[in-house]
């Protein structure tokens, strides 16, 4: 898929694995630059630079039966497995679909809300409930988790039910599809 073809992509996407890719790219860049510098200095000076010689001394002592070599093999295997898993595991969607439109204006339509937007919507709805002092919310997959803080725990159960109902209704009215599972936890502020 080219990113210079002026074509749209789906808005509802899986993570693009930017972080592991950037780390590996940086390692490649650093290794390449160090190799070039070491080779150029060797050509200019006639001998390898001191850091290269000390590193080579350590590696030169490695044998097939040494414990350090076994450690390197295991380490390389683990890194390879981590990279492979990062590539093949899809990851959660970065946004949720909204059921909307249908006017037939465009051949293809797509309406999505970011996971962050979903969490803010849930938090804003919970804030309006009487008895709620503080709210924090997070969204991921098809779940929205809301944590509220209240002054007393006398009506914690009723408060949880009210918040869950209000948030579920708000998200349903917004058209989130499929309907998000809302879980609410209530904490009592210590006096």
């Amino acid at each position: 898929m080219s990113r210079s073809d002026a074509r749209s992509r789906r808005l509802r996407r899986r993570p693009s694995r930017t972080v592991p890719a950037s780390i590996v790219a940086l390692v490649l860049l650093a290794a390449g630059v160090l190799a070039v510098l070491a080779g150029v200095f060797r050509l200019i000076d006639g001998s390898w630079a001191a850091p290269v010689r000390s590193g080579a001394k350590g590696l030169a002592g490695l044998t097939w039966g040494s414990g350090a070599f076994l450690g390197i093999v295991i380490g390389v295997g683990v890194i390879g497995l981590v990279l492979l898993l990062a590539a093949i595991i899809p990851g959660g969607y970065t946004s949720a679909r909204l059921a909307a439109g249908g006017a037939g204006v465009a051949a293809q339509t797509e309406f999505v809300i970011s996971q962050r937007g979903l969490a803010r919507l849930a938090a804003a709805t919970a804030e309006e409930i009487d008895g709620v002092e503080r709210v924090s919310a997070s969204a991921g997959g098809h779940r929205v988790r809301v944590a509220v803080t209240t002054a007393t725990d006398a009506e914690a159960r009723q408060l949880r039910d009210r918040v869950q109902q209000a948030v579920s209704q708000r998200l349903s009215a917004a058209g989130v599809q499929p309907a998000a599972r809302v879980s609410v936890s209530v904490h009592t502020r210590g006096i």
Binding site: G101, A107, Q108, T109, E110, S114
Partner: peptide
């Protein structure tokens, strides 16, 4: 010319 693809990404303002 009719729009072929129309996509909207919604963000919610903290406000």
């Amino acid at each position: 010319a009719p729009v072929q693809r129309f996509g909207v990404l919604v963000e919610v303002d903290r406000g």
